[in-house]
Nucleic acid binder design. Sequence first.
RNA 1: GUGGCCAUAGUUUAGUGGUAAAACAGCGGGUUGUGGUCCCGUUGUCGAGAGUUCGAUUCUCUCUGGCCACCCCA
Length: 487
Amino acid sequence: MAFNHPMKKPEAPKEPYKSTKKTPQLLRGMRDTLPKDDKYWRAVYGKAQELADAYGFGRIDTPILEEASLFTRAVGRQTDIVEKEMYVFEDKDGEKISLRPEATASVVRAYIQHGMLNLPQPVKLWYWGPMFRHDRPQAGRFRQFTQAGYEIIGDDSPVADAQVILVAYKFYTELGLPVNVQLNSIGTAEDRTRYKVELVNYYRANRSKLCDNCKVRLVKNPMRLLDCKEEGCQPIKENAPRILEFLAEESRKHFMSLLEYLDELSIPYFLNHTLVRGLDYYTKTVFEIWPEPFTPKAEPVAPVDAGPGAVLSVSGAVADETPIVIKEKEPKEAEEAKMPAQVALCGGGRYDLLVEELGGRPTPACGVAPGIERAVQQLRMRQLAVPEINKHELFVAQLGELAKRKALVLFEMLRLEKIPAAEAFSKGSLKFQLEAANEKKIPYALIIGQKEVIDKTVIIRDMDSGIQETVDFQKVVSAVKRKIGRE
RNA sequence: GUGGCCAUAGUUUAGUGGUAAAACAGCGGGUUGUGGUCCCGUUGUCGAGAGUUCGAUUCUCUCUGGCCACCCCA
């Protein structure tokens, strides 16, 4: 009778495991990256590194801790990042130190300290590492997050801007992510001063129609008026003076030239006059890269060529015909795409004043910083394929103590031949081991039992057909190589 | 930093003012030599603390954490 297997006598019931110790909690906004996610991280890191090598960026690693003043000077004292998000504390010497909220400041600090101005210019550097901001966590926004970055220091030409954008753009598209480039120029400090006067005048005239938030911005940070999302403010925003029209000749030429390079490289971009980046050190070029809206039901997204008319040509006056693209303005099917509101995958631009600000000789520079968690999130959300780690071709199974020893040796032989094999040496039953091999979809299992040890052989089992053959122990590696097409 | 929603086993979720359930995963087994089915067993102080109550996982408050919007940013 099928259901009357003789059972083992049940053991005495164990006391349920119970601990009196508390498990320490994960700090807010911090995350563990588990093995199941590792493939995404490796794919992204691999791409970041590959591009760095290809475009000639040298790797730089700077400390996570820096003098707090580095960031207050570089990023700007009255920015949100410094004002309310920076981790600052005193160390045992009473020195004010900070967990870095970004890395450009550190890279520039290192450029100055190591006299890199004596190297052939420009100096191109890239980095990858954790950053810290004490922000309120949300999906795609953490207190510890990872940024990669590419910086070109010592080149004032728009080619540098173009290359930085190119690298960032390729970073996403070559990972399979459809993205678009949002581009603007905020000119020089003088350009901005002239612009701000005009902007404030314009908004003052419309003051009564503004939301409360904008009224504050009008006084505190006029540039921010441009990224207000309040509906009532939109028409005012639309007609606001645009900074591109206030650029002095030099900034303007720089920007036009950048657009030409991007056209030449066939990088689609959108001019976005509301793009004002939050770090003080930016001059001239600023940009962000956004993901294309994503609908889960949609077919796999084909690489986006940006719709007709989206790509601007440089011929003709830029300022007039800028079809500004505002984020998806059709919330009717609100539930479909659960994409968080904060969308920028990376941000960057030119920072011609920063080296000087940190005590170096005046040196132009530009760079970009992709947020890695957001890239990984996009890959997962869009279910894009990334290379599997541990794609085992063999499973080494053993039965019995003697066989286990031989299996250990066999595993080493395979490893030296760079044949990726899986094992379950801590288990004894064949059943379990074949189950595991099956679970992992491994095509072949190598089985060693008592009998095989004595005969000096190994069984090769084809997991698909169940067909087995017995091979001489010494010949098993070459036999296996033939089977998996390694010969 | 402001506001809103939420918190049950590893995961996804039921459920109740009288101390809890399902599925999947995990582990063990169906007499230690064979998997992709099947069967059995097993795993939980209902996020933490306080209050109300005879009694709270269920009600209230605080905290912690997650998500969302704002702020801002990667």
